[in-house]
């Protein structure tokens, strides 16, 4: 039953925020790649999957600090290799081709990881500094009694905010970002001006993978480490991109939080909770086909 007490509302709000944070981190890479390269990358969930398996392995062997450094780096390199080895050949192909090839790649990666690590969950230990709970009632005096929330999930929210801010800063306040944004508008013109836009697009793909790496390191202990996780997160993350507007970073953030909140506040009813994200998607697409903050004419 829906609980309207202030404590219940606050807890569901926090939960929605942390669920949205994972969606945002995954959707950010998806929408960045689509916005710049025009590629619908269904293998992005698989990149997250690679990231959580790498993270749990490195964390167990060398500690969380090394996982934090190595996983995004490896994912960045993997992204570059993926773009050069496969994705670049599909830039000018229809979106259906892109979806088919990246979806196929996702399944291959998932089965490979299952073959190597097995189908069962691998426990991802939270580092000692992130373990424990935060006594929310000490921070928010309007709460009644004893209200706690896992520290790691709040760290995840902060990481998500920092990552989103860094990507925004990179795209809006650096020359690299300026060129990328110009390339998103008219890549042909940029090439006439002598800019090697392909190389920059390759880096953008690597950047999208790197964000999946960050999501994997911090999201792994929350989503857990098993072969199906990538696919489970891909659909809501893709819907986040669609609702926010294909290629819109701020749209992805807004939609991610919206979806997280919607799922959190409908958790008491499985039927409503299952359909809510699809319901929102249908309503948004009917009312505003280009998504909440999507550019006019893109997937409209």
């Amino acid at each position: 039953m829906f609980d309207l007490s202030i404590n219940a509302f606050f807890m569901q709000l926090l939960t929605g925020l942390q669920m949205g944070s994972i969606y945002v981190l995954i959707a950010l890479g998806l929408t960045l790649i689509f916005g710049t390269l025009g590629v619908v990358n269904f293998a992005h969930g698989a990149l997250y999957l690679v990231a959580i398996y790498l993270a749990v392995s490195i964390n167990d062997a060398m500690g969380f600090g090394m996982a934090l450094v190595l996983v995004p780096t490896i994912l960045f390199i993997l992204g570059l290799a993926m773009e050069r080895g496969l994705i670049q050949f599909f830039y000018n192909r229809p979106h259906t081709d892109q979806i088919l090839v990246t979806f196929g790649l996702a399944i291959v990666i998932q089965e490979l990881l299952k073959w190597v690590f097995g189908a069962n969950n691998i426990p991802f230990a939270i580092p000692s500094w992130g373990n424990g709970i935060i006594l929310m009632h000490e921070w928010f005096p309007f709460l009644e009694g004893f209200v706690v929330y896992p520290k790691w999930r709040m760290i995840l929210v902060v990481v998500s905010i920092v990552t989103v801010s860094a990507v925004f800063a990179l795209l809006h306040w650096t020359t690299f970002g300026l060129v990328i944004r110009a390339g998103m508008r008219d890549s042909e013109m940029l090439q006439f001006l002598g800019v090697n836009i392909n190389r920059r697009f390759m880096i953008v793909f690597g950047l999208g993978s790197l964000i999946a790496g960050i999501a994997g390191v911090f999201g792994g202990p929350v989503t857990q480490v098993s072969p199906e996780v990538g696919m489970h997160l891909l659909v809501p993350s893709f819907l986040v991109v669609v609702i926010g507007g294909m290629g819109s970073l701020s749209g992805a953030v807004l939609a991610g939080i919206l979806i997280g909140m919607a799922q959190s506040f409908t958790a008491y009813d499985i039927n409503l909770s299952t359909i809510i994200i699809y319901l929102i998607t249908v309503i948004v697409l009917l009312v505003r086909p280009r998504g909440l903050l999507g550019a006019k004419g893109v997937f409209e």
Partner: peptide
């Protein structure tokens, strides 16, 4: 059945 993050349900339990 496919849930991987149970936080929204656990929040209800805590409430």
């Amino acid at each position: 059945l496919k849930t991987t993050d149970f936080s929204q349900y656990l929040a209800q339990v805590l409430n």
